[in-house]
Amino acid sequence: MQNWNLLAEKVLQGNEITDEEALAVLECPKEELLELLHSAYQVRKHYYGNQVKLNMIINTKSGFCPENCGYCAQSRDSTAPIQKYRMMDKETIIEGAKQAHRLKSGTYCIVASGRGPSKREIDIVTSAVKEIKNKYDMKVCACLGLLKPEQARQLKEAGVDRYNNNINTSEQHHDQITTSHTYHDRVATVNYTKEAGISPCSGVIVGMKESKQDVIAMARALKELDADSIPVNFLHAIDGTLLEGTNELTPTYCLKVLCLFRFINATKEIRVSGGREVNLRSLQPFSLYPANSIFVGDYLTTTGQEGTKDHQMLEDLGFEVEYAPEKV
């Protein structure tokens, strides 16, 4: 039997867990799961107390993507019947920020499909961000695909606080998920944003036929990248995508993954992201013991849990929402 409290103490003392310990987390027996969650919570509480950060996504451009990512309904190879539209105008993006503020979201995430942003798309986003930052005291995260260094600098100058570009999976498993760009293309974008002075956000999608060793490698890669915010998505396989019908996850395994990410990236924002509703199901509340952040509202092409239910869940757990009030 693993002493999970000793593992938490090891992490809190600044030591890295071994690969053997990491694998033990992912293979934790069901009768020890509550002890594992408690030990992960000790690490989470040390750095974040009982606060939970809320994030909200706006999908500003849907579909028309030339990439072939196997999980994505917006991919060029997807036949999923999704809504498709070109880049929203500035006013619509700003209106979305109003909704994010109403839901007490501390971070507003502006997302667009595609390999990378055009000049027009960068201009729309930077113009909208400037007005959002003037009106609302909230963080703005952009997720526009692969960036060039000068684009990263433009976003920084406009007031973008954070940029998301997920590694999605391990370097070894990457070619099984997409071949239209490389793992290193994604890493390069994260580094460009860091060089521009933007907080890096990078995460994963678990449940894409990867091994447990791949999951461990993902967590370690994000530690090496020094990502400030780590969204952990759980695959919600959509009909019409290349991963259609994939259903490898259980609620308890998802909780173990979140504990692993907390132990390896102890000081970082760990966010329970896409797929939490369909994969964690009735165990969703337990996810906030290792994680300290969630998305509210809908995702890109799938619906999330009603915002009021998320707030009720947090209140019932005794957690406090971390958000900034409106400027006066």
Results as ranks from 00 to 15, higher is better:
L6Q: 14
L6P: 04
A8V: 09
K10F: 01
N15S: 13
E21F: 09
L26F: 11
K30E: 12
L36K: 08
I57W: 00
I57Y: 02
I58E: 12
N59Q: 09
K61F: 00
G63F: 02
C65S: 08
E67I: 10
D77W: 10
I82Y: 03
K84Y: 00
K84L: 01
Y85N: 05
M88E: 11
M88L: 11
K90P: 06
V111K: 07
S113M: 02
S113V: 02
S118C: 04
E121H: 07
E121S: 01
V125G: 05
S127E: 15
K130L: 09
K135C: 04
C141R: 09
C143K: 09
G145N: 11
L155H: 04
V160D: 11
D161R: 06
R162N: 09
Y163F: 12
N165C: 14
N166K: 05
I167E: 00
S170D: 01
S170V: 01
N191H: 12
Y192M: 11
I198N: 06
P200H: 08
C201K: 05
V215M: 13
A227D: 03
V232T: 00
F234V: 00
D239S: 13
L242G: 01
N247C: 12
E248N: 11
P251E: 08
C254P: 03
V257M: 08
L258I: 01
G275Y: 01
G275M: 03
L288K: 05
A291N: 03
F295Y: 14
T301M: 03
T301E: 05
T301L: 02
T308R: 13
K309M: 15
L314Q: 07
L317D: 07
E322T: 09
A324F: 14
V328Q: 14
V328W: 14
